[in-house]
């Protein structure tokens, strides 16, 4: 397997805060990679750097061999590198179907094609994906009226609708009740195995990430602390110290 995202020597600081310092990591194509670390260790900053929310201070980020560190958010999204948000974001005043239908891949859609209606195939796919996350019955309800957990599922379905190559998930299970988490893990795994989507996941729930990821990176104080298989990470004393605060 080859690396689909290559982050090399990336640094980013906000004023005096060094959010990321000289971070290098790679995400394997077709796999599930995890990113963990205590609060404030720079995980979301790294995600934001990868998807183009802010320019990085130094280093390079490559996606499928192409340098993307100077590209804008929508351009990177159209390449097939998509992210979901930690504070779930959906289009609240639109219903679930409309949320799904506007999430079709925009890399192919020209201005003229935008003046058409959605094709029956797109509607079918949207309904199928809503069924996949268990929201089919609520598809005509306003997305803003759904519960937080349901909005998270909707956001995930929208990301699937976009046919990404890589999906960056920022805490996909945060705020979801424990019974639903199992269903979500199952769906994430199926997105990876059935739809071939490479996943790169930030997660605080150790049970979830150890269960899913093939390789895990751990950040602390903006630096890469450790990397390895879930078993290696679990046994790494530095990781335990970072989480529990060693002195």
């Amino acid at each position: 397997m080859s690396a689909i995202i290559e982050v090399s020597h990336v640094s980013k600081s906000f004023g005096g805060v060094h959010a990321n310092t000289d971070i290098s990591l790679s995400v394997e194509k077709g796999g599930i990679t995890g990113l963990i670390g205590p609060n404030g260790s720079g995980k979301t900053t790294l995600f934001n750097s990868i998807v183009g929310y802010h320019p990085i201070d130094s280093g390079s980020i490559r996606f499928e061999g192409r340098e993307i560190s100077r590209m804008l958010v929508p351009e990177i999204a159209r390449l097939g590198l998509l992210r979901t948000f930690q504070q779930t974001r959906i289009y609240g005043a639109m219903n679930c179907m409309q949320n799904m239908l506007i999430s079709i891949p925009h890399r192919k859609m020209t201005l003229w094609e935008a003046f058409r209606r959605n094709s029956p195939e797109e509607k079918e796919r949207a309904e199928h994906l809503l069924e996949f996350v268990g929201l089919y019955e609520k598809r005509l309800l306003q997305a803003g009226s759904l519960s937080f957990g349901q909005q998270k599922l909707l956001e995930f379905a929208m990301a699937m609708m976009n046919e990404p190559t890589v999906l960056l998930l920022d805490e996909p299970t945060a705020g979801i009740n424990p019974t639903l988490i199992n269903g979500l893990i199952d769906r994430l795994k199926r997105a990876n195995s059935e739809y071939g989507i490479t996943l790169f996941i930030i997660e605080h729930n150790m049970r979830v990430i150890m269960n899913m990821a093939e390789r895990i990176y751990c950040l602390a104080y903006g630096k890469l602390l450790a990397s390895g298989t879930p078993a290696e990470i679990q046994d790494d004393q530095r990781v335990i110290d970072a989480y529990l605060g060693a002195h």
Binding site: A77, P105, H106
Partner: peptide, 8 residues
């Protein structure tokens, strides 16, 4: 969100 989904 629209930008993050690649909308022009």
């Amino acid at each position: 969100k629209a930008e993050a989904m690649g909308i022009h």
